[in-house]
């Protein structure tokens, strides 16, 4: 028996919009810890890890660990039928091949049940080792999205370099090149507007902009994005989900041949 009630149902809608283009099918895992997902894109270049902790739900009942194979596009279609203010409850049962999404309006005067078919998905959880990162950049998520969008119109790849001077985003394409530097900038009044760079040593890595631009669909979930970089490791682009958990996108670098 599974029953997860989320007052701020819009969070779940935003989560789906953030990942559905990167990953088409995935297993959602439900345990005492929370509602989670780990999945790779079809090219095995990027990986998304989502956690919505049980404490963040208004009501969380999960009698035993359950894995639900879901087509994310179909789930997104159903969640789009929920109003922006609706409370969303996810209901499931062992041994059934469906999951139900219940949408309640704030005033409780409209209740909708959407039943969706589950699917069998073969997937293995990858072990993500703990890593010390050479540099961690925290910046406004909207600023990062803007940079990825702008550079994406010039080139296909971005070189992200962190030095004492700041974080540099560079691309080159047929029409020319572009270089954007963001310096550390702390805003006491609005910490979410700050750019903070923690650097143990300088690092420079190259990534496909197409994936970076896909990750920025999570911008609506958090005002701040954290980018963790180490040579020879996938970059981690993390959006915290207020008081509930996170979406982390891992992207393998491109390397010089």
């Amino acid at each position: 028996m599974l029953e997860l009630r989320l007052i701020q149902g819009s969070l779940l809608k935003k989560v789906l919009e953030a990942i559905k283009d990167l990953v088409t099918e995935a297993n959602f895992d439900c345990s005492a810890t929370g509602f989670s997902l780990q999945a790779m894109d079809s090219s095995h270049v990027a990986l998304v890890a989502l956690l919505l902790r049980s404490e963040g739900f208004d009501h969380y009942r999960c009698d035993r660990n359950l894995s639900m194979g879901i087509n994310l596009n179909n789930m997104s279609k159903m969640l789009r039928c929920a109003g922006p203010e609706d409370i969303i409850t996810i209901k499931g049962d062992d041994g059934t091949d469906t999951v139900t999404f219940m949408f309640e309006s704030q005033k409780q005067d409209k209740i909708s049940d959407f039943e969706m078919k589950l699917m069998d998905i073969d997937s293995e959880h990858l072990g993500i080792p703990d890593a010390e990162y050479q540099a961690i950049v925290r910046m406004p998520s909207a600023e990062f999205a803007r940079i990825c969008k702008d550079l994406g119109s010039i080139g296909d790849t971005v070189v992200i370099s962190v030095t004492k001077e700041g974080v540099k985003f560079f691309t080159r394409g047929d029409v020319g090149s572009a270089n954007i530097v963001c310096r550390q900038n702390t805003s006491v009044d609005k910490p979410e507007d700050s750019t903070v760079i923690e650097m143990n040593e300088p690092v420079s890595l190259t990534f496909a902009l197409r994936y970076m631009n896909s990750f920025t669909k999570a911008t609506t979930l958090s005002e701040v994005v954290t980018i963790s970089l180490s040579s020879e490791l996938p970059v981690v682009v993390e959006y915290k989900i207020a008081e509930m958990g996170y979406i982390r996108f891992y992207l393998a670098p491109k390397i010089e041949d």
Binding site: V45, E124, P234
Partner: peptide, 14 residues
């Protein structure tokens, strides 16, 4: 030329 690495070359299957 740059080559795209796979995520599987960093993270292990169980």
């Amino acid at each position: 030329m740059t080559r795209q690495k796979s995520i599987l070359s960093f993270f292990q299957k169980p």
